[in-house]
Structure formats: structure tokens, C-alpha cells
């Protein structure tokens, strides 16, 4: 019953005329649409795709370039930092050296001045000693001379010697 219904209704019976018209209509549609629509649309899409791709490529290129420059700048900065550090530390070492040198020099100078002073004092002392000895000798000789010139008593002797000794004391002071 179902099959007769379907066939009588023409639902599954092929119609050659319709096949003919479908083929004609469809082929014409393929032909015309290819010309007026598919070709320009697909071409435009391809062109846009290429355009987008090249834009992406350019952006990628620019990014890579920027990254390269950034890396370079960073390296440069690091190098500069190292250089600056080196300069500062060099300067510090140099300053330290100079300070040590100056200190050394000053110390040496001071030591020299002190030594000179000491030497001067020693010299003056020696010179004074010599002078003292000479003076004592002179005085002794003078005393002896006086003793010899004045034949005197023992009292007088004592006075004379005490006088010489007093004189010596005043000289020594």
C-alpha cells in the first residue's frame, strides 16, 4: 500500500524532463556564477589572505628586529655597566695606592725630620760637651796658674778651690 502510494504520487518516479531542466539550469548557473561571482570573490579572498600573511610576516620581521635591537642594547648596557664598575674599582685602587704613597711619603718625611732633629740635638750635645771639656780644662789650667802664681796658705787654698768650683757650677748651669 505504501509503495503504490509513493509511486502513484510520483515521489520516487524519476522525471526525465526535470532531469533535463535541472542539468541545463545547474550547468548554466555554474558557468555564470563562476564568471560573475566565484572568480572575483575567490581572487579577492586570496589577495586578502596574501596581504594579511605578508602583513603578519612583516610584523614578525619587525618584532624579530626589535628583539634583536633590544638584546643588543641590553648587551651594550651590561658591557657599559661592567666597564663603569671597572673604572670605579680602578679609580678606587689607584686612590688607595696614592693615599698609601702619600702616607708613606709623609711618614718618611716626618721620620726624617725627627731623625734630623735628633741628629742636630746629638751634635749640639757633643759640641756642648767638647766646649764644656775645653772650658773645664781652661779653668783647671787657670786655677793651676793662680795656685802657682800665689803661694798661699791652706785657708786661701780652700777659698780658691771653692771659688773655682762655684764658677764651674755657674758655667754648667
Amino acid at each position: 500500500m505504501v509503495s503504490t502510494l509513493i509511486l502513484s504520487g510520483g515521489l520516487l518516479s524519476p522525471n526525465p524532463g526535470l532531469v533535463f531542466w535541472t542539468a541545463i539550469t545547474f550547468l548554466l548557473l555554474v558557468f555564470v556564477l563562476s564568471k560573475v561571482a566565484w572568480k572575483p570573490i575567490v581572487e579577492a579572498l586570496n589577495e586578502r589572505e596574501n596581504n594579511i600573511q605578508s602583513s603578519i610576516n612583516r610584523a614578525e620581521e619587525a618584532k624579530r628586529e626589535a628583539e634583536k635591537i633590544l638584546a643588543e642594547v641590553k648587551a651594550e648596557r651590561a658591557k657599559a655597566q661592567v666597564e663603569a664598575d671597572k673604572i670605579v674599582s680602578d679609580a678606587r685602587i689607584y686612590a688607595e695606592k696614592i693615599r698609601a704613597e702619600i702616607l708613606e711619603k709623609a711618614n718618611a718625611e716626618a721620620r726624617k725630620v725627627a731623625e734630623d732633629a735628633k741628629a742636630d740635638i746629638e751634635l749640639a750635645k757633643q759640641r756642648a760637651m767638647i766646649e764644656l771639656r775645653n772650658t773645664v780644662v781652661d779653668l783647671a789650667i787657670e786655677a793651676a796658674t793662680k795656685i802657682i802664681q800665689h803661694n798661699l796658705d791652706a785657708e786661701r787654698h780652700k777659698e780658691l778651690i771653692a771659688g773655682v768650683i762655684n764658677e764651674l757650677e755657674t758655667v754648667e748651669r
Binding site: N15, G17, F20, W21, T22, T25, L29, V32, A37, K39
Partner: peptide, 30 residues
Amino acid sequence: FDISITRHVVMMWVASLVLLLLFVSIGNTY
């Protein structure tokens, strides 16, 4: 050979006409 213009042929032509009108203008845009 029966090549009558049936209801479905007319519908296909209407569809084709719609497509042509639509795509001629869009094709020109592109």
C-alpha cells in the same frame, strides 16, 4: 520526451534568479 516546465523547474529558476541577482552585485563589490 516530456520537458514540461513544472513547478519544481520554476522553483529552480527562481532560485537561480535569486542567486544571480545576489552574486552579480556581490561579485561587482569584490
